[in-house]
Simulated scan of single mutants.
Amino acid sequence: MIDISKEICPECQRVERYLEIDIKRLFNKLKTYKRRKLSDREQLYICLSLLGEEPLDIAKREYFQYLEQQVKSQHPGFTEKEIQQKVNELIRAKASGIKSFITINLSMPLKEFLSELDKDIDPEAARPSWAKIVYILKANGYKKEVETIQKRGQRKRIVIDYEGRILLKKVVKILEEFEQYLADVDLTIEDIEQEDEEHE
């Protein structure tokens, strides 16, 4: 199994375990572009985004339970369907705020940093997709060197072959479910570059 440091947050550990990104080194590097240490919130959003989570996914993680309780308290006469509709409306608003937060606080330092790693990245253009960012990091020295234990010295490869777009978060979920049954198996994502989409 990969030896993950207990000094980093659970989401950072997931980035190191499944993406093999040296997340602490990345945070330290971005600190020079931000001219300050990244906040806990900034670090969390970077990790979740690298793992394929969209702002809507992050909003659901952070606010769904709280907003559901709030709506039930404020609207005791609502049906279950009305509650969910109202919660979804509030979640979308939170997601919009998260997207703006990432754009305002993280996109520019990320683009400046990535443009130094990859000369094809224009810091004045839209930020590359998070999947592209993962690829660039691993191709430019940010792949974390981790110790693994290979049971009986054997390595097996699981290939996910698909047509069309597949979300990285679904791949991570598959690996997490595998690990529940294969306790002594080391599972990571091996990158194959694909056509990129730009995001802001």
Rank of each mutant, 00 (worst) to 15 (best):
M1H: 08
I2D: 07
I2C: 03
D3R: 09
E7T: 12
I8N: 00
C9A: 11
C12H: 11
V15S: 01
Y18W: 10
L19H: 02
I21P: 00
F27A: 06
K29V: 12
T32M: 02
T32E: 13
Y33C: 10
K34T: 05
K34F: 02
R35L: 14
R36H: 07
L38K: 06
D40L: 13
E42M: 02
Q43R: 14
Q43K: 15
L48M: 12
L50M: 09
L50I: 06
L50G: 03
G52P: 03
A59I: 05
A59S: 14
K60Q: 13
E62P: 03
F64L: 12
E68F: 03
Q70A: 08
Q74C: 02
F78T: 03
E80R: 11
E82C: 03
I83F: 05
Q85K: 15
L90Y: 10
K94C: 08
A95T: 10
S96F: 10
I98Q: 04
S100F: 10
T103K: 15
T103A: 14
S107C: 09
S107F: 14
L110G: 06
K111M: 13
F113N: 00
S115E: 12
L117Y: 11
L117S: 08
D122Q: 03
P123Y: 09
S129N: 08
W130C: 03
A131H: 04
K132P: 01
I133H: 07
I136L: 12
I136V: 12
L137I: 05
L137P: 03
A139I: 01
Y142E: 01
K144D: 03
E145C: 05
V146L: 15
E147S: 08
K151R: 13
R152Y: 14
Q154G: 01
I158N: 01
V159Q: 11
V159L: 11
E163Q: 11
E163V: 05
R165C: 01
L167M: 05
L168P: 00
L168I: 11
L168K: 09
K169R: 15
K169L: 10
K169E: 09
K170A: 10
V172S: 02
I174F: 13
E177Y: 05
E177K: 15
F178H: 10
F178A: 09
Q180C: 05
Y181P: 00
D184I: 03
V185H: 08
L187G: 04
T188R: 11
E190L: 06
I192E: 14
I192Q: 09
Q194F: 04
Q194H: 13
E195H: 02
E197Y: 00
H199F: 14
